[in-house]
Nucleic acid binder design. Structure first.
Length: 442
RNA sequence: GCCGAUUUAGCUUAGCUGGUGGAGCGAGGGACUGUUAAUCCCAAGGUCGUGGGUUCGAGCCCCACAAUCGGCGCCA
């Protein structure tokens, strides 16, 4: 007999049929002659009814004694029954336990632990992440995550971008040097990459339109709901592109992710308590653009203490975005607030041609991007101006010596986007094994 | 790096002015033929984060340390 998925049984595909289910015990209840085994697999869960009279004493005892998360194979008849959660149940004819659970070491994640975490996380659940993954909340998050990754690849591949991989061991920083992870490297020091960008720029003259989805590493001791030390970074780079064109792609890919989640995971979003109308707004509305100067004026008008030239930290972003109901781009930051690779605005050299995309609901910055400093002369001047050493960037400077062209790109924090669209309380909730400054286990 | 908080059974927690630490869930034993976090009965489970101090007496007061959580800076 071919085994079937529980999700298909619950959707009515096997009503009245005799089927085999393979899964794990979610919960059991019942009495000495009748047991209800709630079995789950990757597609859902179903109540399985085990009657002593039907299966015999031996099988009844075996199935009754199986603890939560025991794996088993059950054969039986699919019945439509109002009393069962999901509307279907399996009248068990026979079954066996594949992998049991020792009563001395029962599955540690109990209902009380889940309730106490209130949909979020506790230290206990983080310590037992390897087991927490199989609860419905985490499974749901991982399915949403998969769809988000698929949407990113889909967006870029539909537009004939080439997926391109950069090294993870690097010699220099992209962002501030203080956030680099040092790695011993055969007697030298290497670093874990903070961004694919510099290596993407090297391939830009070859591929013109390229993207990646890869981990980036930042040794930030940040203790916030928006930060991980290892996060998934979707980055893209386009030859001949302007800041505005790059923003169109940023808006395009974020809206594509939101639309894909609505299409593929609307039940999952709802089960997490996410309002689908909100996600729909993110999928369908255009994302307004606002210059840095305008943002500063707005904030000053609200009585926020900020001077021109200051970067917008999270406390300021939060005030600025509190009335936004869709993501907004912030463009044209002062040169003094941004690193050397941002291209100076030819119309006003106090600014750079860059953008940040700020998500609403307090989820912060989800994209940072813009045009790159592309002439050799300018990049050398900007590197020296900021007191950055030239040596680690020699390959980067070199790319500009042979037919440099205007170009740009962005980096998108995939985990942040997922946390935002799923309405998660913390970025940790949307990645299977979160890494932050205090946790590298399990 | 800075600020704030927490730490009591496997998990989640209560614990009064300092006077013999209670419960729910889980796990164990038992009852029950339609349960929905099933229910009912029984029994077990604690060096109260670690180390010091005050006191006749500390889960509670004081000091140090540790782990964890939340927020900020920084960023995606």
């Amino acid at each position: 007999m071919k085994s079937v998925f529980i999700g298909d049984v619950q959707s009515g595909a096997h009503d009245g049929a005799e089927v085999e289910l393979k899964g794990w015990v979610k919960r059991t209840r019942g009495n000495n002659n009748l047991r209800f085994v709630v079995l789950r697999d990757s597609t859902g869960s179903i109540q399985c009814v085990v009657k002593r009279d039907t299966v015999g004493d031996e099988v009844f005892a075996l199935l009754s004694e199986a603890l939560i998360e025991s794996s088993m194979i059950l054969k039986g008849t699919v019945k439509v029954d109002e009393r069962a959660d999901g509307g279907h149940e399996l009248a068990v004819l026979s079954g066996n336990v594949v992998g049991g659970v020792d009563p001395e070491r029962p599955f540690p994640i109990t209902e009380s632990a889940m309730v106490a975490a209130d949909g979020g996380e506790t230290e206990f659940l983080l310590d037992n992440r390897h087991l927490y993954l199989r609860t419905s909340r985490m499974t749901t998050m991982l399915q949403i995550r998969s769809s988000a990754f698929g949407a990113i690849h889909g967006y870029f591949r539909d537009l004939d971008f080439v997926e391109y991989q950069a090294p993870n061991f690097v010699a220099g920083a992209v962002e501030g040097g203080s956030t680099l992870f040092e790695v011993p490297y055969f007697g030298r020091t290497a670093y874990l990459t903070q961004s694919w960008q510099l290596y993407a720029e090297a391939a830009m003259p070859a591929l013109e339109r390229l993207y990646t989805v890869a981990p980036s590493f930042r040794a930030e001791k940040s203790r916030t709901r928006r930060h991980l030390t290892e996060f998934w970074h979707a980055e893209m780079e386009v030859a001949w592109a302007s800041n505005d064109e790059i923003m169109q792609h940023g808006e395009g890919v974020v809206r594509r992710i939101a639309a894909t989640l609505l299409e593929e995971r609307s039940d999952a979003l709802e089960s997490l308590g996410r309002d689908l109308n909100t996600v729909e707004r993110y999928a369908e509305s255009p994302y307004p653009r606002m210059r840095y100067d305008e943002a500063v004026e707005t904030l000053q008008g609200m009585g926020v203490d900020i001077e021109w030239g200051q970067d917008l930290d999270y406390s300021k972003e939060k005030v600025l975005t509190q009335d936004f109901d869709v993501p907004h781009f912030l463009t044209h930051y002062p040169k003094v607030a941004k690193p050397f690779y941002h291209r100076v605005d030819p119309d006003d050299d106090a600014y750079v041609l860059c953008h940040d995309l700020l998500a609403p609901e307090g989820y912060g910055e989800i994209i940072g991007g813009g045009e790159r400093t592309w002439s050799e002369e300018e990049i050398l001047a900007r590197i020296d101006e900021e007191g950055v050493p030239r040596e680690p960037y020699q390959f980067y400077i070199d790319t500009r010596a042979y037919g440099g062209v205007p170009h740009g790109g962005f980096g998108l924090g995939v985990d942040r986007v997922i946390a935002w669209l799923a309405g998660a309380d913390h970025i940790r909730e949307v990645i299977p094994f979160p890494r932050d400054s205090r946790r590298v286990t399990p």
